[in-house]
């Protein structure tokens, strides 16, 4: 597909977009300017090799957006390193991780980080929930966001190849914790059933969710995206994500209840 990438990338529109992307990522700082240069340099390198991978499956400007987004993140990783967050944060989901990265690692101002994750007019996430998340992170990691002083080494370690693998380590403690939370307002927890490995195995077989349901549950309940934002991002009818999520939760509830893993009040 023949596209004049230099003309597109160096157009006033694209230059403005790249600048805006970098300023949202790093604020109005020198880093934003350096990141803009980094993006332009890498887009044009190798005779526009990255751009020329375009085959026409998407619109050119959206493809260009994905490349720019990747390059901005690549710059951030080179600048701030790739540091592994605490395991408790990893279990809480990508929104928590992103907040941690912005505030603790890159030391961005809290309002800027919240603005970014809440989206324009708070279209993506609830601002108050994000504020609560920041409070939790700061309470558990007192060094987070401080402009001076060393970050305790035990708080993090550098990523090593293979660390991204999803392992089942820690699954049972997570389930126990979550189960307790589920039951905190509804009745007496019966943790013994949850501690039984056979129970977990049986649940794995009994809970059947489609990929779309798993994606929507994750976006909505783990990462706090509004259902309207999910619908827009997946091009679904406005209330389809909420319906799919409700069906999935009802199914999960039914499976747990049928194995007496939920008290009657929680059903």
């Amino acid at each position: 597909m023949t596209i004049d990438w230099p003309a597109i990338v160096f157009s006033e529109q694209t230059q403005g977009r790249i600048r805006a992307l970098c300023e949202r990522r790093f604020g109005h700082t020198a880093d934003a300017e350096v990141a803009s240069d980094y993006v332009l340099e890498h887009l044009s390198s190798g005779d526009w090799a990255q751009c020329r991978k375009f085959t026409g499956k998407s619109r050119p400007e959206t493809f260009l957006y994905t490349l720019c987004s990747n390059l901005v993140e690549e710059y951030a990783r080179k600048k701030f390193g790739r540091i592994r967050p605490p395991s408790w944060l990893q279990q809480l989901g990508d929104t928590w991780l992103t907040l941690w990265k912005f505030i603790c690692l890159e030391r961005q101002p809290v309002p800027v980080a919240i603005d970014r994750l809440a989206g324009e007019d708070d279209a993506l996430r609830d601002r108050h929930a994000l504020t609560d998340m920041v409070k939790t992170i700061k309470a558990r990691l007192p060094w987070c966001g401080q402009q001076s002083g060393e970050i305790p080494l035990e708080e993090y370690h550098q990523d090593t190849p293979g660390d991204d693998d999803n392992s089942d380590d820690g699954l049972e403690p997570l389930l126990l914790l979550l189960h307790q939370l589920v039951l905190e307002q509804t009745g007496e927890p019966s943790l013994s059933a949850w501690q039984n490995p056979d129970t977990l195995q049986a649940l794995r077989g009994a809970i059947t969710l489609s990929d779309e349901q798993r994606l929507i549950l994750r976006m909505a309940y783990v990462d706090g995206l509004k259902f309207s934002a999910i619908a827009r991002s997946l091009n679904l009818p406005t209330h389809q994500p909420a319906r799919l999520a409700q069906r999935a939760v009802a199914h999960i509830r039914e499976v747990l209840a049928s194995r007496q893993l939920l008290p009657e009040g929680g059903e």
Partner: peptide, 29 residues
């Protein structure tokens, strides 16, 4: 409760083999 139930279900059903070839940048676009 919906959030916690979802987290439990996602933890239990994670790492299913995905269908088709891995999406590239253009697929996401």
């Amino acid at each position: 409760q919906d959030e916690y139930l979802s987290r439990i279900a996602l933890a239990l059903t994670q790492a299913q083999p995905a269908q088709g070839s891995e999406p590239d940048d253009e697929d996401l676009a």
